[in-house]
Design a protein around this nucleic acid. Structure first.
Lengths: 215, 215
DNA sequence: TAGATTGTTAATCGATTAACAATC
DNA sequence: TAGATTGTTAATCGATTAACAATC
């Protein structure tokens, strides 16, 4: 009943967090049971898609009845690895890095932030959420001792390649990449999740301009 | 030669900023001419896809020769609307909003940031990049006078719906949405570009966990 | 001209939707 | 049991890749 999982497509995976979010809200509003049809209406997609997606991982529903909200939520939490607490470091505590470190709740999403690094001596010694900002000098030592699995990259583009290369050597397996550097081209065996804010903004520019053109 | 454009798919649009980026880099490194094959190798996709994508908008190449880098860059800039300077406001100047306002170069990407708003009295009066943070009270007045077309939402989830509703009434046509609120469900005729950092992080969690499982 | 590479049409592949038998 | 809704197979749709004639 628990896990079929066999090369799930990225399209499916990217929908899971949204299911997770909606199920969480349903729980908060006291809904205990939901059918794929009702969930599909609330989320703006098809019931078929929901059933297909969920059945990549197992049969979580019950014919004639639907899905138990809390149970489905727990299953998706487990699938997403919410309890995994992957040891994580953040590189680059400038504007963006600082905001990410203080704004995100990592613990609820499968991560445990254990270190923050920045070259700028002015930042060193400061703390974010109780984690001190260290200089890059001690990074190798830190990695060998604490074995971070994930690194968040809020560095300027030019600094990324060198640091990423070393981090991979020291055992990092995944990057949350905010820089405009195409990491996956250089590290094909590493997981890279990009947040390309500039690309997102340009996409918005195109779409708004197009939208205005059609009026 | 200039613009065919006829219901371009979002998949194509989302690749344009990346082409734009790569062409920019090529220009910087002094490359003046490139074939779809060589660009495809550098970007890690197929030559076919590049030619298909570009031909949604027009025939920018030359048989037997390839593409002139600078010319193609300019065309894509124009397609993306980089010169449009859409008047834009930012709502919510907390950690994340502050970082976005100070970190992003809006002017190079089709936007012109003209106002920042936050309810917190402590922030009011402060400036980010020369733009003062105003209270929400004057928002309606401001919109009527300055007609912002785009709004960046860095607000807590619960505040989003009400503000978005009013902004749409006052003429806003597009949102850059950092909140975990599904705007597009409520405003089907508005352009919404989501940056769901939490979803991105959960996706990373899944993928890294999966990656580790397979070793 | 011959060689190269585009623009475009056709073939393939993958993702979404529809349909329905299984079953709670 | 009858009604409802799942899990799953089949059909459709869209996106990517391959092929090639047009042409610089």
């Amino acid at each position: 009943m628990s896990t079929k999982r066999d090369n799930i497509s990225l399209s499916v995976i990217r929908r899971l967090p949204r299911y997770h979010r909606f199920l969480h809200d349903l729980m908060l509003s006291g809904v205990t049971r939901i059918s794929s049809r009702e969930l599909s209406e609330r989320m703006g997609l098809t019931a078929s898609q929901i059933r297909q997606d969920l059945n990549c991982f197992g049969g979580f529903g019950q014919q004639g009845y639907g899905y138990i909200v809390e149970q489905l939520y727990d299953e998706i939490s487990r699938i997403l690895g919410v309890g995994n607490n992957l040891p994580t470091i953040l590189l680059g505590a400038g504007n963006l890095g600082h905001a990410i470190a203080s704004h995100m709740v990592f613990e609820d999403r499968g991560f445990h932030l254990i270190g923050i690094f920045d070259r700028d001596p002015k930042l060193q010694g400061q703390e974010i959420n109780g984690i001190p900002i260290s200089s890059g000098d001690c990074l190798e030592e830190f990695c060998k001792q604490n074995k971070p699995v994930v690194a968040i990259l809020c560095l300027p583009r030019d600094a990324v390649f060198d640091i990423a290369k070393r981090l991979v050597e020291w055992g990092v397996e995944g990057f949350w990449n905010f820089s405009h550097f195409d990491l996956s081209l250089h590290f094909p065996n590493i997981v890279v999740e990009n947040v390309h804010l500039g690309d997102s903004l340009l996409t918005l520019s195109y779409r708004v301009s197009e939208h205005r053109r059609q009026e």
